[in-house]
Design a protein around this nucleic acid. Structure first.
Lengths: 223, 223
DNA sequence: CGGATTGTTGATTACTTTCAACAATGGTGG
DNA sequence: CCACCATTGTTGAAAGTAATCAACAATCCG
């Protein structure tokens, strides 16, 4: 026996477990807009809201004391980010492309079981992603990482040209590689016929199965 | 967009959300014991419980289709693991040392706000760890990884000899390195005077600050 | 004590980084 | 609309780090 709880996360959601503008303990929030490379919040900032990405791409990243940057995740429309257990953000969130974001204040969450369950869902999805990512980084090989990354970022189903929203530098900091290695590996994948680089950012995936075989592990999580 | 949370009832499922022994709305569960290398659950198993480690050390790991193993986390007494968003375990949990575990069935979570909030806390702690770990793997250098690992695993405060509970193979799969590299790097840290290897597993940390400086980043999370 | 397991060390190879120079791109102003 | 220029991406050569393969040593357990 099992029980299923539907957690509606869309703005138009309805029902008991809905975090949305208008909820008793929350209020409607305007859509915020950010230009590319603009900061949504920075690590160390007081955490008090969660954010739902409406459009665009966001990177959640950590700046190390030694100046290096690690990108933990790229958020796509529909993703929720920025919720924290403690009082301050552990990561920074920055717009990769122009993007639209809804901020939702999380006050009195502990008084609202439905919200707590929904928060749990978001946390678990983020957890699954983070674990998959650390598996990717532990597993090594530039080719495998890039293949997995491309399958994750370019969800298209046919052989159409898709646009990578982020720069090589972002990819490098996400995959734990250098921009030069990204460049070379991308070229190699092209030489192997797995993809075609129309320009650096405009890519046509020629052989999705080949890429999946290359990275030799689970398909990208669709969480 | 909507998300579904499967809240599984154990086969003996009865009563309100049972989360840990002693709590008002929960019931006491027996302590399970596992021998070293014994499996607590395997990836793909139906998920219906969470587990609290009472004593010993557990590894949460993923076996890739190509045979490689990645260890996502080592659990220490007090840690809670095994909760899932979906209906099955994404990772396996195995005893590293002999250990004692309390299994808690997760039923009727939606009726128990306190349990949901507690679950959220566990998920967020796991998330913070997973993110820190992917930062560690992305950041590189065997020496830095091992230094961070030792600070994480050997919490002692003075210069006493401590015992590593896991084998080199486990460390390697956790840090994304090989056992040979672990061995060599350990020897190098000893040569640099940062630690002393009484035996392979019995280690005296000589210079905690030095190790922290080496890994050049955040202190280990105490979550 | 003995034997299997676990850990170490050495030599070589493979891969990624680093440093450097160059090419392409895309946005801006003329 | 085009030319310019800063930004972004590519390519090459050399160096460094970790992986691999192989042999050996130490440890633990019965």
């Amino acid at each position: 026996m099992s029980a299923t709880v539907m957690l509606h996360t869309g703005e138009h959601g309805a029902g008991p477990a809905v975090v949305r503008p208008g909820h008793a303990s929350r209020e409607s929030q305007p859509v915020l807009r950010f230009a590319p490379d603009e900061s949504i919040y920075a690590q160390g900032d007081t955490a008090g809201s969660m954010y739902r990405l409406v459009s665009g791409v966001v990177r959640c990243c950590k700046f190390q004391p030694d100046g290096r940057r690690h990108i933990n995740a790229f958020c796509k429309p529909g993703d929720v980010f920025g919720f924290e257990l403690a009082g301050e953000h552990l990561l920074s969130a920055e717009a990769v492309t122009a993007c639209a974001v809804v901020r939702m204040r999380c006050q009195g969450m502990e008084k609202d079981p439905a919200a707590a369950i929904q928060l749990y869902g978001h946390a678990m999805r983020s957890l699954a992603r983070a674990q998959a990512h650390s598996q990717l980084l532990g597993r090594s090989s530039a080719g495998q990482r890039l293949a997995a990354f491309l399958l994750e970022m370019l969800p298209g189903t046919s052989e159409d040209v898709e646009t990578l929203p982020m720069a090589r530098h972002d990819i490098a900091d996400y995959l734990g590689l250098t921009i030069e290695t990204i460049s070379r590996t991308m070229g190699q994948l092209e030489k192997e016929g797995l993809l075609e680089l129309v320009t650096a950012r405009r890519i046509r995936i020629r052989d999705r199965q080949g890429l999946a075989a290359l990275c030799g592990c689970e398909e990208p999580l669709d969480v």
